[in-house]
Computed example of a mutant assay.
Amino acid sequence: MKPLLLAAALMLAAGPALAQNAAQIERARTGAACPKCNLFQADLGGLELRAPNFVGARLRQADFSLATIVGARLAGADLRDIDAYGAVLTGGDFSNADLTNASFVGAYLNRSSFAGAKLSGTNFSGADLSGARGLTSAQLVAACGDESTRLPAGLRISACR
């Protein structure tokens, strides 16, 4: 009986899972600053935003497809599993962000900073990163692309499987 009580107490102490915050998502969709917001699964696809501040925000599984977002501040953000198909994300700050399993297929990422970003499983097929900053060979070993992926001089990326 005691193990059952312990398990129940631990489940209560853990609290509910962090779900998205609809009010914060609506604010973010207007381009308002939303650092450290919970934007889990936010639909930002097709939006045009200028310099939104999403520093440290939780954007896991968010949709950035076909968005035009210039100068986004995403340092330290949780961007795991995002879909940024065909997005224009110029001048973005992705430094120290977690981009695990993110999809940037066909995205335009010039002048964006990736210093310290985690790129494990990130798909850059057809993406233009030719003017990106802070990318290293060590980061790109964990990512993938294709023959049309454009990278800064001297960097290479493995083909996606």
Rank of each mutant, 00 (worst) to 15 (best):
V55Q: 12
V70Y: 11
A87M: 09
D83Q: 14
R73W: 03
G106K: 02
N110W: 06
N96T: 14
L47Q: 13
F64Y: 03
F64M: 06
N96I: 10
S112H: 08
L59S: 03
G106Y: 08
A67C: 07
N101I: 03
F104W: 10
L74A: 07
R50F: 12
R80Y: 05
T90P: 03
D78N: 13
E48Y: 11
N96P: 00
L66A: 12
T68G: 02
D81G: 00
G86P: 02
A62S: 14
L39Q: 05
Y85V: 10
G56K: 07
A84L: 06
V55W: 01
L89E: 11
A102Y: 06
F54S: 05
L74D: 03
G86E: 11
N101D: 15
S95I: 09
R111C: 00
A77N: 01
S112I: 05
V70I: 15
D83N: 14
D78C: 01
R50Y: 11
A51Q: 13
R73A: 15
K36P: 00
N38W: 00
L39T: 07
G76L: 03
L44Y: 07
L66Y: 08
L89C: 12
L109R: 02
L59Q: 04
Q61F: 15
R111I: 00
A87H: 06
L47G: 10
A62D: 04
L99C: 08
G106H: 09
G56I: 08
N110P: 01
G86D: 04
A72Q: 05
D93G: 00
N110Q: 14
A87N: 09
L74K: 03
A57P: 04
C37R: 01
C37S: 13
G56S: 02
Y108L: 13
A67H: 01
L89W: 10
A67F: 03
G56E: 06
N53M: 06
L74S: 05
V55P: 00
Q61E: 15
S65W: 00
D81M: 08
D93R: 02
L39C: 10
S112L: 03
D98T: 14
E48P: 00
L44T: 03
D43G: 03
F94T: 05
Q61D: 15
D43F: 02
L47C: 05
T100Y: 03
T100F: 05
T100R: 12
Q61Y: 15
A67K: 01
R50A: 14
D78E: 10
L66C: 00
R60A: 11
L99S: 07
F104Y: 12
R80A: 13
